[in-house]
Amino acid sequence: MVKGSFSGAVTPMWLITRYEAVKNVLSDTRFVNSPASVPGMDVGNIREQMIAARGIDPELAPYILDSILDVDGADHLRLRRLVSREFTARRVIDLRPRMAELTEAQLDQLGDETELIENFAYPLPITVICELVGVPEEDRPAWRDQGRALMTLTPGAANAPLWGMVELAQDLIERRRAEPGDDLLSALIRAHDEDGDRLSDRELVTMLITLILAGHETTTHLIGNGTLALLSHPDQLDLVKKDPGLWPRAVHELMRWCGPVHGTQMRYAAEDVEIDGQTIKKGEGVIPILVSANYDPRRFDDPLRLDVTREQDSRRETHVGFGHGLHYCLGAALARGEAEIAFNALFRRFPDLALAGEPERQYMPMSWRLAKLPVRMYL
């Protein structure tokens, strides 16, 4: 556990690195996501400082700072209950045939050589989440373009795509209100219109943006990172080729070994808390570092080794790639299901898949992702 700071944040924060400490912080209700939840103190919002340093317009900041990922207590439970039924393991099982159909259709479009992030890893998850939420097919390219443009660190450059996503959300909400469907957005609109206390206007827009962004970003880069990992470890790839029943366990291991999310949202100590013999004072910020927890030799034998058979029970996970506790990733079951289907179909359809050039990393803080993954499909 160390104390440090990020560029753009003037307040130091604690980085929690050991596996047990990370799980303890993520499950301890004395650590809250919002500084406003720290009683009796005016705590500076470190994420607000970081967003300001990126040049985000103040009018847009609430769409980033006040999502289901950021709120605490009763507000978090209220928002989570509105959407959680669509992301249960049972619901994902029901969705698997459609996800398999979409995967095969996407693979049908690949040529002898392709850039896998652009042409498979990205379009598949955003198509799945858009279908689940209720984004019409003709609107999806705009959501995709704005979402990708948002992933920039250039000061001020995120404002235009974020405004674009707010406008897309507002327009889609009005159309779905006029013509409701059997989708998650229509259900959210009904909850808003029948009882505004359950979901405000801004919360509805924020929820839609959050679901679409969070609903594909992690899966996209799990597919990209995982494909590169398997191509770089042919012995492990051979195991899942010979026994496709290993894919659920393999996805757990890939999420541990090369998961795209390296750290969680900021937490704040609501009171003095002792972690590993160190006192985190009330109001201080902490970030649990998922990647270090997933490589902690106290928990994982030979953690640098990729081992697709490491997780013995595919129904549970020992890694913390999707977080832990009350804010455990809402879409974890969906992401795992998509990844299992995507990897299985990709290597079944193209058993001789190989790199066709050097992968290119995309830099984002607290993230591991590829901008490009050139591959050839046949020998």
Rank of each mutant, 00 (worst) to 15 (best):
V2S: 09
S5F: 08
A9D: 09
T11S: 15
T11I: 15
M13R: 07
W14G: 00
T17E: 07
R18S: 07
K23T: 09
N24I: 01
N24V: 03
V25G: 00
L26H: 05
D28Y: 13
D28E: 14
D28Q: 14
N33E: 12
S37M: 12
M41D: 14
R47W: 13
I56W: 00
I56L: 10
P58T: 11
E59H: 03
E59F: 01
P62R: 04
I64H: 06
V71F: 09
A74E: 15
D75E: 15
L77M: 15
R78A: 03
L79V: 07
S84P: 09
R85V: 12
E86D: 14
F87Q: 05
A89P: 06
V92R: 00
P97S: 05
E101R: 11
A105T: 11
Q109I: 08
G111M: 08
T114Y: 11
I117D: 04
P123T: 09
P123N: 12
T127S: 12
V128I: 15
I129S: 01
C130N: 05
V133K: 03
P136Q: 13
E138H: 14
G147H: 07
L150Y: 13
M151I: 10
T152V: 13
G156C: 08
G156W: 03
A158V: 06
N159L: 13
P161I: 03
G164N: 09
I173L: 09
L185C: 00
L185S: 02
S186H: 06
L188I: 08
E194I: 11
T206W: 03
M207L: 12
I212C: 07
A214L: 11
A214K: 05
H221C: 15
H221N: 15
H221A: 15
N225A: 03
G226E: 00
T227D: 03
D235R: 08
L237R: 02
D238Q: 12
D243V: 04
M255F: 00
M255I: 05
R256D: 02
P260S: 10
T264M: 12
Q265W: 10
I275R: 06
I275G: 03
D276N: 06
V291K: 01
A293H: 01
N294Q: 04
Y295L: 07
R299H: 03
R299L: 00
D301S: 07
D313R: 01
S314H: 11
R315H: 07
R315C: 00
H319P: 05
H324F: 12
H324G: 05
H327E: 13
H327K: 11
H327Y: 12
L330G: 01
G331E: 02
A333N: 13
A335T: 11
L346P: 01
F350A: 05
P351H: 10
A356K: 02
A356N: 05
R361E: 09
W368M: 07
L373D: 08
